[in-house]
């Protein structure tokens, strides 16, 4: 189980990083969302993995999973929605204003074309 969660975090991080290094806004935003999942799951896992012991107090139960990371991740999920929305809006505004959805400044592109494949 631990291996599965850890590798899922790794896979999502790798995918997120790759997409974040793309040149257009939309894949970059998706990459950031993937990275957000990875970070949230990672933070959540810092309470260690427990199956079938939700932190809902009830009589006669003594084993609960760690509730604190859950509380922190819960707000993180909601906030990340807000941040994604802002980034999407900025990206969209830039595209609508200039008909261009590159994430880099034009100067950088010129450099790249001058340098050619490096």
């Amino acid at each position: 189980m631990e291996f599965l969660v850890a590798s899922a975090v790794g896979v999502m991080t790798a995918g997120g990083l790759y997409l974040m290094l793309r040149l257009r806004t939309f894949p970059v935003i998706l990459g950031m969302s993937l990275l957000t999942y990875a970070v949230n799951v990672f933070l959540f896992a810092s309470g260690r993995l427990t199956v079938g012991a939700p932190p809902i107090l009830s009589d006669g139960v003594t084993v609960y999973t760690d509730p604190l990371p859950q509380a922190l991740v819960l707000t993180a999920i909601v906030i990340s929605f807000g941040m994604t929305a802002v980034v999407v809006m900025i990206g969209l505004g830039a595209f609508l204003g200039s008909d261009d959805d590159h994430v880099d400044d034009p100067s950088e592109e010129e450099d790249e074309t001058v340098q050619g494949p490096s």
Binding site: E2, F3, V5, A6, S7, V9, G10, V11, M12, T13, A14, G15, L17, Y18, L21, R22, A38, F42, A45, S46, R48, L49
Partner: peptide, 21 residues
């Protein structure tokens, strides 16, 4: 970019894996 991404993925995997155990 692939190298960067794979390196990042492997390191978070290793971190999470060691951490969880």
């Amino acid at each position: 970019d692939t190298i960067v991404a794979v390196a990042g993925g492997l390191s978070t995997f290793a971190l999470a894996y060691y951490y969880l155990l």
